[in-house]
Nucleic acid binder design. Structure first.
Lengths: 136, 136
DNA sequence: GTCCATGCAAACGATTTGCAGAGTT
DNA sequence: AACTCTGCAAATCGTTTGCATGGAC
């Protein structure tokens, strides 16, 4: 809520109750929800919300660079409100996604052969591991 | 073909013509095809192949760890025959995927806060950039 | 005959789209 | 009225599954 709710008083992006609920859910915890996660949560307060609204809002927020789409789960897309570039770690058991704030850029040099083919403009590290909960 | 075709003479994994075609395509170039890419290519030689066969074969090969599924394209899964752990770079224009053989493990240390939550067991770096072709 | 791969078609799950109705200005 | 968001339903796309047929041992 905070950030985005302030930013868009009303202009260009209408702050409807559903959208507020979506933003609050997205910014309310350190989760990385899928569209369905968002849908389920918003439905608690607005039992008539539709997937169309959720996806519409996601699309509008992506376009405005207020949220980021994460491609880390082969089955579905996930979203997060944290715009600062960072990395992720995924529990291989429960699939929980954690944030990793660190800048590895200086270490992540491309091998020479690859540099002949590509100019790198960014990077994202996907760690996998086991979370505290799943260690038992 | 080489590797896998030799390995499985016939036992446990039947080398049918369709499977040979799939393996040849997978190992024949440094591509990272999607199921549909594979399907289209095999169809050239076997016009009656079905997606079921392609997906069945992919599944069987994944289970035997002969190919790896890549989660880097939000729209579809990609596969590659190179089992050695390595990283990837994706052209943000044409989506071409390149291999990056480098071991960044020593540099990729998790921040202390994250280590309290997760034990890392692996990593994969997803570079993005622009390929030679798309520079024009 | 047994086993297992094939190929067709139907099913499925995630996401997208068309559109009529509503809310806001 | 103009604009745009909502919610329903239908459509789409990638992937999976059920099942009858068919080839290899």
């Amino acid at each position: 809520m905070r950030k985005v709710l302030q930013k868009y008083g009303r202009r260009g992006f209408k702050m409807t109750p559903q959208r507020i609920a979506i933003l609050e859910y997205l910014e309310g915890s350190d989760n990385h929800p899928s569209a369905e996660d968002i849908f389920r949560d918003v439905k608690k307060r607005y039992p008539t919300v539709s997937f169309a609204t959720v996806y519409n809002t996601i699309e509008a927020l992506k376009k405005r660079k207020e949220i980021v789409e994460i491609t880390i789960d082969p089955e579905r897309k996930h979203y997060e409100p944290n715009i600062n570039p960072h990395h992720h770690i995924v529990c291989i058991i429960c699939k929980k996604i954690g944030d990793v704030f660190a800048d590895y850029s200086t270490a992540l040099r491309l091998p020479a052969e690859v540099e002949q083919e590509f100019i790198a403009t960014g990077n994202h590290v996907h760690f996998f591991g086991i979370c505290k909960n799943c260690r038992s």
